[in-house]
Amino acid sequence: MAIRLSQYYGLPEQQWSCRVAAEFAGKVPEVIAPLVASDGEAAFLWQGQPITVWPFVMGAPLDRQNPVERRQAARLLARLHISARAFPSLGEGVPPEPDDSEAQRLFPDRELDQWLRSWPGHNGDEPVGWMHRDFFPGNVLCRDGRIVGVVDWDEVEWGPLINELAWSVWEFGKSPAGDALDLDHAREFLSEYQRAGGPVRPSDALIPLIRARLRSGIAFWRRVNAADPVEDQAAVAAFAALRQVRLDVERRSTSAPLLSTPLT
């Protein structure tokens, strides 16, 4: 068994995330459901902190440089998104309203802020559903060349699924140093997601959504004094570099979405 202690979330949030994970587990075999106590809850307090217990899964974190595993992750994300609409037992959720004022203060970007305020995805123009939200190689376990588990459901969230697609494109497509996006890997991830029937249509919204999440993440880890200096520096460099990356929607086909950088 695996015992998890939550550092950043309270008991109600952990109980809810466990319920969402259990619903996903009923539809997607790779999702690991938490163990439930006699009171029907999977999270409880121990010395004031939420504890959850999960079946142990033998596996290693996905290797983002392995093309077979990377493509499997894209197809798995598509299946999660297909299943992500309102579960009968949970209904629809309420998108959070994060306070990004600290991130905006640390990394002012008027163009990005204006885009975020006017983005149509806030108004129901994108498919919405439940998201793992921390879908990255460290939370996707592989054994014998295939994915056997999706773990760490602490950050479950309801909202536009394109937010998760954007972050997954980054996490599975970024360079080994974490300071740039490998366009070939990102293109491949999007293609596999679409081939697997993923409900989100890739668009030029992906890059600004990645940049917004990068900026928020940098601010968060600095605020809790847990920022790794090397990762922090790489994320800062990526936030700046991605400003020059665009999705070429006009030339995108349904089987091969294209990413490009501007000539100037």
Rank of each mutant, 00 (worst) to 15 (best):
A2C: 13
A2G: 06
A2D: 15
R4F: 11
S6V: 00
Y8I: 12
L11D: 06
R19P: 01
V20E: 03
V28N: 01
P29N: 03
P29L: 03
E30R: 02
A33Q: 01
L35G: 01
A43Y: 01
W46P: 00
Q47Y: 00
P50Q: 02
T52P: 01
T52V: 00
V53N: 01
M58V: 07
L62N: 01
L62G: 03
R64E: 01
Q65Y: 06
Q65R: 11
N66D: 09
Q72M: 03
L76G: 03
L77F: 02
H81E: 04
I82V: 13
A84V: 05
A84R: 04
S89C: 06
L90E: 00
G91T: 09
G93F: 08
V94G: 00
D99Q: 13
D99Y: 14
D100M: 14
L106P: 05
E111F: 13
L112F: 11
D113N: 15
Q114N: 11
Q114P: 00
L116C: 12
S118M: 11
P120Y: 06
P120D: 06
E126N: 07
P127V: 09
G129R: 06
M131D: 06
R133S: 11
F135I: 02
F136Y: 13
R143N: 09
R143L: 11
V148R: 02
V151S: 04
D152H: 09
W153D: 02
E155H: 15
G159S: 08
W167N: 15
V169H: 02
E171M: 15
S175K: 11
S175E: 14
A177V: 11
G178F: 07
D179I: 10
D179K: 10
L181K: 12
D182F: 13
L183I: 13
D184L: 14
D184Q: 15
H185W: 13
H185N: 12
R187P: 01
E188M: 12
E188A: 13
L190Y: 05
L190M: 10
E192Q: 14
Q194K: 15
R195W: 13
A196I: 04
G197C: 10
P202M: 09
P208V: 08
R215M: 12
A219G: 05
R222H: 05
R223D: 13
N225V: 05
V230R: 14
D232W: 11
A234K: 08
L242K: 08
V245T: 15
E250M: 14
R252S: 15
S253M: 12
T261P: 04
T261H: 08
P262K: 15
